[in-house]
Design a binder for these strands. Structure first.
Lengths: 138, 138
DNA sequence: ATCCTACAATGGACAATGTCTAAGTCAAGT
DNA sequence: ACTTGACTTAGACATTGTCCATTGTAGGAT
């Protein structure tokens, strides 16, 4: 994760305790925290950090392309630090657990011109839904 | 749309003016209204209808499988009455316009077992993003 | 090492969306 | 037409996110 911090500093990002803590919280595979969860974990490391700062920092990380916004559920946006490799998501319909997945093929190629309505299509987001092993046995 | 009303009545749905109005508002192709938009249009036909009733009715229509919940943007859920035929969505990244699309192939088949993490995968939702003709020329 | 200044953080008000509840109303069967 | 249980209502409340004026501070300049 010091990679991320180094990269950010290299881009002229002013380094502060708050930003460092937020970046540290967002580390790992299959991490998809809501803004509030990020805030809660950040508070554990730096009690005086404010909600607004967490929102601001998350927004900046997204603009910089270091973190991806994921909207798998209707409630809160989630933040996915695994931005360096394209991937999609598999979500448990009952408990909400999320895994990163890498399907074969390119869904963009599956959209014929006749179905593009004149749009310039540049991106595709795929969300698989089902039941995780835990919820299946329960 | 009287089809829908008949089907609902057949399922033991109690028919009320409010439910009829909500069902009428949700009619057509490429219709993807937010709950608030549904409420606004319902009020035009039945001024005393309440917000809670619109939310309740939308939730019931979703449970009954007559309407699909779509979360293409991070703000509000949208309601898509085109539930009889599976389809996906194409969204303009700037103005938010939404079109129903029917890509070739089956994305479910593109997810290898090794990428399923023991989940029972039952559904997939694909959102294409790009710029619509209007926003492109602007 | 200290000072400056632009940028960042704070916290609290505000906004948007959605949920819940208690009380009143009504559709549909008898 | 009555009765009853389901439906509707209005508004309070909850959650998520944004905005702004004020205060604080990182990092370059001296």
């Amino acid at each position: 994760m010091s990679d991320l911090l180094e990269r950010l500093r290299g881009r002229g990002w002013r380094m502060t305790a708050q930003r460092r803590v937020v970046a540290e919280v967002l580390d790992g595979e299959h991490v998809h925290l809501t803004a509030d969860e990020v805030h809660a974990r950040a508070v554990a490391k730096l009690p005086e950090i404010s909600r607004a700062t967490v929102y601001n920092t998350l927004g900046e990380l997204v603009s910089l392309g270091e973190v991806i916004e994921v909207t798998t559920d209707k409630r809160a946006k989630r933040y996915d630090p695994n931005a360096h490799r394209p991937h999609h998501h598999l979500v448990c319909a009952r408990c909400g657990a999320i895994r990163d997945v890498h399907p074969r093929g390119n869904p963009l190629a599956d959209l014929p011109d006749s179905e593009r309505f004149g749009f310039t299509v540049s991106d595709v987001e795929v969300t698989y839904r089902g039941l995780c092993p835990n919820c299946m046995s329960a």
